[in-house]
Each structure stands twice: as structure tokens, then as C-alpha cells.
Nucleic acid binder design. Structure first.
Lengths: 367, 367
DNA sequence: CGAGTTGTGTGCAACGTTCTACACAAGGAT
DNA sequence: ATCCTTGTGTAGAACGTTGCACACAACTCG
């Protein structure tokens, strides 16, 4: 942000000081008949406080409804705030991670605040910097797209846990699903059902270089390797992990002369789009075509959908991240890279592959 | 939070000062060969700055990668931060509102930070207070459950916009969907299709008293009134607006001796649960039973679901909230209560009511 | 009884901004 | 020349915390 952007509004904020002034540590000190330093000591549970003084001070705090001013604290080095940057709220996985973080932080003095960075590295940097400007004591970054060098530089100065990004790093901890393994589970599941032409839908890698990759690349790599181990030819379509992206990719795949018998959406949301495409084109799922996803988002569990998918517990991921971050804030420097094991959930959108000749369109439309 | 909770961790944070010190306004001043006051002036676009000085200062800012310290600014009265409290990330409506807020704030110097308050008033207060502690310049509260008196007291000292809460208030602006009207639209739609026994699923009101109610109560009131105007008898089941809550309520409704011909979930997510119940119990939707929702969440648009619902644009709601908040921060005190018009979206889960005798169970289960 | 030791409380200088009050220079009008 | 403006820059006191350095009292020990 150049200086000018601040100015536009700067002059408008003409200080409408809240009528009832907020109690400060001074007020508490006066009420309790002690010095501000003494109150600070009580607040910090520092050494050198008699039981009677503690009681008097706590009474005063209670009575005045005193709450510490985070900004002032931040100027002295810590804000008791954990910053969480996520890339999108609409995907259901990230909110689950946030839930896990909140739950874990609940019994600590730290508060989580979030910013939404969006799908582009630029916006994500903005979101992260906004948190750093607010002097957060630690950072959780969910699926960040930023370059490895930027990340290393950032994490050299602020304790950080990175979620859903492979490759690890020297300065930060990470919590990541074993996407390679998850993709393998799914490919093996389909192969066991007799599928030979399995298309995989992937998402742009964002220019990250291996091994510092996000889920999409890891899942794609895992898919390719698993296909080869099964003696099958990999077939990847790059699209966007959105309902529409999945739809378009599926239309393309199903328009080919030799059609796939299974579509493996790299994310549930893309699989849902593929599902819509299949229905519109008159294919029955799973009789004519299997469609599977990854993430086990909430929608996938609903009766009408019942999507075969891979589960990675968002809640566990979040709770683990928070725990690691607290450790790191407390002084640990040796990096920890935690891997969450994925779990295959076979449901009703995958079934045995149709005999090759049977892969045909129905003439009547479904439902 | 009592003082003790801070102490647990306090001593652990033993100041691992980031190696490379962050550039301050002093550093910039030195680099540019001017006083700190001068730099501050440039930053604020205040009067009394020559073009040459501005240029020199901006160069120095650029070169040092200087970013203002929000905490220090907050101590002087403003933090350029907008606090957003939302109650849950999992429901798709609230994230959409956040998107709208972010979009509107993008061209302002303000940054949005979020906290997640959860479904209970207690947690929401915590979330709001955490934001106030961080000296936000303004607050957006999404569907807050807190008492009206608490809300009035809070908003007396900090500019606030409340989303999705009816009744308005003197100290704050609000943006709210016309839930009464939306419920009427839906009831009329069903009545026009010949439905006479329409069950409505509602969510606990949280002890709020009219007119200061959240969406659930307004929708329920709108439903009751619309039913009566159509000469029909209202039939409300209180449950939770979740997939499971909708499921259980639907099982109850369908277990009665005289079954409803339509279920109006107060929220899409509850309607989805009802949909699952109907399918499991062997009812065809919409042939045997119409099921409709409210919110037009993303999932409802997906082919397999295609739920009849009422749309309230979350994005518009968010953008409007942010705009109102900026106005309020800029000095407006007269409250504005903005009402968003709902829109009926008939899709494939509603159809003409079956003849009374035809409301029977199929013996074969679907799919 | 003086020298330590321990326990309990205070004084004060930061931390990074903002903004009022002021200083100084250059020019314009009398 | 003197007095006003006007334009441009700086000094310095806040803002609310923290935590080091100290002071003072009451013991303990030789």
C-alpha cells in the first residue's frame, strides 16, 4: 500500500472518542491503591505479589471491567493474538481447520483472528501482511500460494505453521495431508473395480516448484504414480477446482471418442461439477460412469450426493496446527512436519466398471 | 477473562525478537533526512508537505519496506481495521457476506479481520470483545445472538453494522433480508401449487424478544401470517438448522397419521436433511412431497439437488454493510436500516400437491 | 549488632505513532 | 523598514503497557 491510500480516509476519521472512556491499567491501579506496575505484575502473574494485593487488584479489575489494550501490549512485544490466513471461505475444508484451531486455542490466552487472502498470491500476501502489521504472536497459513523464498523470509521472524503445503521448511512447522497416499487409495479402489480409463482433474499449481507444492500437485503426482503401478495410463485434465471447473472438464472428457469409465476429481467440489455434467449428458452414475472426489466436504455426505471420496480431518488438522504453533511460540525452533493420514470413503458414486461396449449414452434423461 | 488466564502462557513468551528489526517511522525519517513528524505527515497526507519532501519520503518508505505499526496507531485512536464477528463458517451464507465486505473494503485503507463466535451468545461476546480489545475502528456483526441491551451498550462506543437481525436500533446500522416477505413468497408458491398441509422447520430463537429477532423467528412469523392469509393452519416444528436437525424434524412430520404434502425448511441446510429423510422413507420428491428451503446456498444449485428456495444475496448484503460502516466511521450518526429484498427461486423439489389419497409410501426404495 | 537474604512494592524509560504548537523563511502590502 | 501572510518543517507530549532497576522493610545468620 502506498502512502496515498491511507490518506483518502485518514482525515475522515475525526476521532469520535467513545463517550465512556475505557478503563486503563492506571484506573485499576488508582482504584486498588497501588502502582500501575503492581497491576501489571498481577496481570502477568509475575514474581513479587502478595496475596492481599493480588486480591485487591483483581477486585478492581472486576469492578471496572478492565480489559488490556492489545495495541499497547503489542508495542511491548506481544499481542496474544494468532493470525490465521485462509484462501477461501467457500471451500468447506478450511473452515473446518479454523474450527480446530479455535477449539485448541480456547484454553489458552490466545485469540485467533482471520483474514481471507483469496486464490492469488498477491491477495494472500496482503492478508498475511495485515496480520503481521497487527503484531500477531504467531501465524497459521492455510494452503498459501506464495513463493518458498517469501515464505522462508517471513517465517524467519514470526512463528508460523503452514497447513496443506508439502515439502516442509526450516523455519516453520507444517501440517499436511498425505495427498500422495490418498490419491493412491482412490486409484487402487477404482482399479480394483475394474476401471482402466480413469481421468484425473487437477488445479493450477500456482508455479510452485516441487517439493513445495500444495494439495493439487501432490494428489496429481500420487495419481500418476498409482496409475503407472497399476499398469494404467495417466490422463490428467487441468481445470479449476470449482463446480463449474469440474463441469467443463467432465464435458471435455466425456466428449472424447474413447470415454473414461471413471472421473477422479481432485476435490469434491470439482467432482460435484462432473456429476452435474454426467447427468446432463445422460450418463447414469455409477452404472455408466464412476465419479469420485477428495476432501469429504460436508455436501458429499448428503443422501442425494453420497460421493465416494477421501477424508482428511480438517478439525484434527486445525487442532494440531494450533498445538504446534503454541509450542513454537513457547520456544521450540526445531521444525516439525506433521502428516495426517487420509482415509478412503467408498460411497455410492463408484461401482464396477461397465463392460467396455456398455459405456454408452442413455437416450432418456434421468429423473 | 480473569487475569490468571493470561499468566499461564505469559512467561513462556520470552521475547524471541525477530532477527531483522522492522523498519519504523524513525528509520524512514533518517533515511529521508527529515523528522519523524514529517514522515507522519506524508503518511497521513496532512497539510504542509512540499512535493520534493513527499518524494524523498516515499522513496525511503519504498526502499525500507516500511509498514505502519497498527498497534502504535491504535494507541493514537485508530487502527484501520474493521472487525467482523460471524457465528459459523460452515453455513455458506456468512462466508458470502464476508466476501462482500472484503470486496467493498478493497478500495479503502481498512482491513477486515474476522473472529468466529459460535452459536452461543457467550462465545459471540468473547469474539466481539476480542475485536474491541484490538481497537477496531468499526464492527460488522453477523447474526449476533446477544441481548439487545448489551448490543446497545456496545454500539454506543464503536461504529457498528449488524447483519441479519431485525428490529433495528438507535446506535447502529443494520442490513437485513426481508425474511417475512421471503417466507410469504414461499408459502404463496406452495399454496398456489395446491398444498394445504405445509410444515415449517424453525430454529431456536435464542431468547431474543420481538422485534429484535434473527432470521429464524422472522421467517417463522412470516410463514404463520402467510398461512393464515391463505386460510391454512400453521404447523411449526422447532429443530436445529443443520442437516441432521432437518432430517429428524422431517422424520417426525412424516411419521404422523396425516402427513404434510410440503416441508418448508427455514434454511436450505435443514431442507437438505429433510430431503434425505424423505428419500430414506421412500417418498419421491417432488411427486409425493415438496421440500423447499431458504438461503439459496451453493449446494442447492447443484444439479442433483436443485432445491426450490429463496435467494438473499450474501455478497450484496456484505458489500452494503461495509459501505454503511464506512459512512458511519466517517461521521454519520443517524441510523440506517437497509432491507434486502428476497427472491423466490422455484426449482425441482416443489410441484403440485398430490391428491390427498395419493400421499402414500412407495414400497420400493428409490435408486 | 552488622551483613546478607528474601519478600514486596514503586519509578521510569521505553515501544511507534499522531498531531498540536511552534519556528523559521520568503514574499507582499503598507 | 515593519507587519502580515503563507508555506514548510520540527519539537515534544501523549497513548497504555511492560519489565528492569531499585528501594525499603523484615528476617536470618554469624
Amino acid at each position: 500500500m502506498s502512502a496515498t491510500i491511507y490518506s483518502t480516509f485518514g482525515r475522515l476519521l475525526t476521532m469520535r472518542r467513545g463517550s465512556a472512556r475505557r478503563a486503563t491499567i492506571q484506573d485499576v491501579a488508582q482504584a486498588a491503591g497501588v502502582s500501575p506496575s503492581a497491576v501489571s505484575k498481577v496481570l502477568r502473574a509475575a514474581y513479587g505479589v502478595s496475596p492481599e494485593m493480588r486480591a485487591r487488584v483483581n477486585d478492581a479489575i472486576e469492578q471496572l471491567g478492565y480489559r488490556p489494550h492489545t495495541g499497547a501490549r503489542a508495542m511491548r512485544g506481544r499481542s496474544f493474538t494468532i493470525g490465521v490466513m485462509l484462501t477461501e471461505l467457500s471451500s468447506p475444508f478450511q473452515p473446518e481447520v479454523v474450527d480446530g484451531i479455535s477449539a485448541e486455542l480456547d484454553s489458552s490466552p490466545f485469540q485467533a483472528i482471520l483474514t481471507v487472502g483469496g486464490a492469488l498470491a498477491e491477495g494472500q500476501k496482503r492478508g498475511i501482511e495485515a496480520l503481521v502489521d497487527r503484531q500477531v504472536d504467531g501465524l497459521v497459513l492455510i494452503a498459501p500460494f506464495v513463493s518458498q523464498s517469501w515464505l522462508e523470509k517471513l517465517t524467519a521472524s514470526v512463528p508460523t505453521v503452514v497447513v496443506a503445503r508439502h515439502g516442509g521448511g526450516d523455519n516453520y512447522d507444517s501440517v499436511v495431508d498425505d495427498d500422495y497416499e490418498g490419491a493412491r487409495l482412490m486409484v487402487d479402489h477404482l482399479a480394483a473395480l475394474g476401471h482402466r480409463r480413469i481421468v484425473h482433474l487437477t488445479h493450477p499449481s500456482g508455479g510452485l516448484k516441487r517439493p513445495f507444492v500444495l494439495s493439487q500437485t501432490a494428489r496429481c503426482d500420487g495419481y500418476v504414480k498409482a496409475m503407472e503401478r497399476n499398469g494404467l495410463e495417466p490422463d490428467v485434465i487441468e481445470t479449476h477446482w470449482s463446480e463449474d471447473g469440474g463441469y467443463r472438464a467432465a464435458v471435455e472428457a466425456l466428449g472424447r471418442s474413447t470415454r473414461p469409465t471413471a472421473i477422479f476429481g481432485g476435490a469434491d467440489i470439482a467432482a460435484l461439477g462432473a456429476l452435474r455434467a454426467a447427468e446432463e449428458l445422460g450418463y447414469r452414475v455409477p452404472e455408466d460412469l464412476s465419479i469420485v472426489g477428495y476432501d469429504n466436504i460436508y455436501v458429499s455426505t448428503i443422501g442425494r450426493i453420497s460421493l465416494t471420496t477421501v477424508d482428511q480431518s480438517g478439525h484434527l488438522t486445525g487442532a494440531t496446527s494450533a498445538r504446534l504453533l503454541l509450542e513454537r511460540i513457547a520456544g521450540r525452533t526445531r521444525p516439525v512436519h506433521y502428516v495426517v493420514a487420509p482415509r478412503l470413503l467408498p460411497r455410492s458414486t463408484s461401482a464396477a466398471a461397465a463392460a467396455d461396449t456398455a459405456t454408452r449414452r442413455r437416450s432418456t434423461s434421468p429423473r
